[in-house]
């Protein structure tokens, strides 16, 4: 439970985090418009992993309008809570119509910004930033656990992935070598398992973890460009790990019964 304590954070960090999540939200909304997500909402195109029936074009226009309004309001640091909650609901619907991991991840982060406390110079902790940090760590561990299979560790999955269309710039070419693919598979799993330990391991290790994670996500964005949102949201979610000040002692934050 010691790890689950609230850390002291500045209002400026909370504001920056909100702005960047708003940027991700706005960018994803615009991408959806450009790629024809409206056609999917209208029921005229198929959406892989859709969990609700196509709700219609009018619903899509409303979703995008709310998402863009929230993104602009967050950028201006003038986002009322009702608008953020509406944006979180709209993003949830957007994700249910065509679910992808990168959209699910963005949806979680938008909900955290919507439900978290507003940036305030008097406030010393922001639980939603701690939650975002934990969410990222859980994503890393979960992704690693799912990969601990003979098939993945043999490098076969990475080789198949490198053969898919959309992988660009030749970054995946070395994976055609089975030995390289095997080493890469172990590196991926090792990195995903090791990152939470680094990120939660104090300021010095956190800096190393942030650099390593940012590098990994930038590489992912190049190799698998269609999943760019995931990398962007993950990099934004590294912000809560940026060392600011000392961790607030449990007593001063009034944690648990000791403060009563």
């Amino acid at each position: 439970m010691r790890l689950l304590r609230l850390r002291e954070r500045s209002a400026s960090l909370a504001r920056l985090h909100g702005r960047l999540i708003g940027l991700c939200l706005g960018a994803k909304a615009i991408e959806g418009v450009v790629l024809g997500r409206g056609v999917v909402f209208a029921g005229e195109a198929f959406a892989p992993d859709g969990h609700v029936p196509a709700p219609g074009l009018a619903a899509y226009v409303a979703v995008v309008a709310v998402q863009l309004s929230a993104a602009v309001a967050l950028a201006a640091a003038r986002a009322p809570r009702w608008l953020l909650v509406a944006a979180a609901l709209a993003t949830s619907l957007d994700t249910l119509v065509a679910t992808q991991n990168n959209r699910l991840f963005l949806t979680v982060m938008v909900w955290l910004v919507a439900l978290g406390p507003r940036p305030d110079p008097e406030r010393r902790s922001y639980w939603h930033l701690d939650a975002a940090a934990w969410q990222l760590a859980i994503v890393y561990v979960s992704a690693a656990v799912h990969k601990i299979t003979p098939n993945y560790l043999s490098g076969a999955t990475l080789r198949h992935l490198s053969e898919m269309p959309h992988a660009i710039l030749g970054f995946t070419a070395p994976l055609e070598n089975p030995h390289v693919a095997t080493v890469a598979a172990y590196l991926v799993v090792g990195t995903e398992l090791g990152l939470p330990a680094l990120l939660f391991g104090g300021p010095k290790r956190a800096r190393v973890g942030i650099a390593l994670a940012a590098g990994m996500h930038l590489t992912m964005a190049v190799v698998l460009p269609d999943a760019w949102t995931f990398s962007l949201v993950a990099i934004v979610s590294l912000l809560p790990f940026v060392p600011e000040r000392r961790v607030v002692p449990r007593t001063s934050l009034g944690e648990r019964e000791g403060a009563r």
Partner: peptide
Amino acid sequence: LRLFVLLSVVHVALSLFVPALPGWKMFSRV
């Protein structure tokens, strides 16, 4: 914070056993 982490862990645990549940699988199987 604790409630959020609990829900997130439950989601991950369920996704290990329910393939249809969107989880953080990240190209673990191709």
